[in-house]
Computed example of a mutant assay.
Amino acid sequence: MSYEIYVVSHKKTRMPDGDIYLPVQVGPAEENFQGFVRDNTGDNIASKNPNYCELTVQYWAWKNRNVDVKGIVHYRRLFSNGKKMLFASPEKKFQNVLDEKKLGEIMKNHDVILPKKRNYFIETLWSHYIHSHKTEGLVALRDVIAEKYPDYLEKFDEVTSRTKAHMFNMIIAKSPIFDEYSKWLFEVLGEVEKRVDISDYSSYEARIYGFLSELLMDVWIEKNNINYYELPVMFMEKQDIIKKLGIFIGRKLGLVTEV
């Protein structure tokens, strides 16, 4: 079985070891980073990276790569081999990144690997989104599903009423599943794109389709009864926990809308 896990990055930075990882450069930089491929080759939507974030690499992988298993991770967030590694050093974390042996064992019995669910505790995914982003995109997304994909509406409402979800747009999947999910995802987001004017959005809010897509993964996975396995996600850079907590509380009070 052949594997490619695409590590999305807009800058030159350390990448995980192992032949299963393929660094993919996104963004407008003229320099081609050594050891990276770019998402602006073949059939691509690389120019939409400011709006679609890491999804430009998902689109590129869907349209251009031919392997048995495809995956999307970020340079700052990687799947571990099973340990949480929450307070470990970056070096320790890199030593415990998901490797080919562990990946092969998981894929023998599962079709998809997802991050462990993120819990927002005091609010639903719907309320978290409207406290964090402009509301019109979320409303348009639900309208599109209701009109174009009504079989998914009940599941969409169920998922967005929860406090937990698989976030970060991180997924490793057998290629037929990766490609089918991608086809549906980009069809849905393409319809939303026709309905929402983002011309006056800040650079943060312009990342709308990357934000919205995080709400759609569980909708598609559960509606299609996909067999998945969860792994912890390791954040590979230093985190300011106090700052993050302040932003979280500020959003709930309506004092913070962007980061």
Rank of each mutant, 00 (worst) to 15 (best):
G82D: 10
Y152L: 15
M236N: 06
G190I: 04
K63D: 07
S175R: 13
I247Q: 08
T135G: 01
N109H: 11
Y21W: 05
I247N: 04
S127L: 11
L215E: 09
H110V: 00
S202P: 01
Y149P: 03
F211V: 01
I20K: 08
G18V: 06
V144I: 11
E205C: 01
P28I: 04
H110D: 00
Y75L: 05
V159H: 02
K183W: 03
T56R: 01
I242P: 00
D17I: 00
E187N: 15
G82M: 02
K108R: 12
V26L: 07
D111P: 01
H133P: 07
N227Q: 09
Q58C: 13
K11C: 01
F87R: 11
K108M: 05
R118M: 13
V159N: 02
P90K: 12
R207L: 08
M15H: 09
F235K: 14
G18T: 12
K93T: 00
H166A: 10
D39L: 03
N40F: 09
K194L: 14
D68Q: 09
H166Q: 12
T124N: 07
I247D: 06
V73Q: 06
R162T: 12
H166V: 02
G18W: 11
I145N: 07
E237P: 00
Y209P: 08
Y152R: 11
N96L: 02
S182L: 06
Y129V: 05
E230R: 13
G190H: 02
G104T: 02
E237L: 09
E205T: 03
G104Q: 03
K244P: 00
S203P: 04
Y129Q: 10
G254S: 04
K84A: 09
K108E: 11
E187I: 01
A165R: 06
E154T: 15
N109E: 11
E205G: 01
M85Y: 14
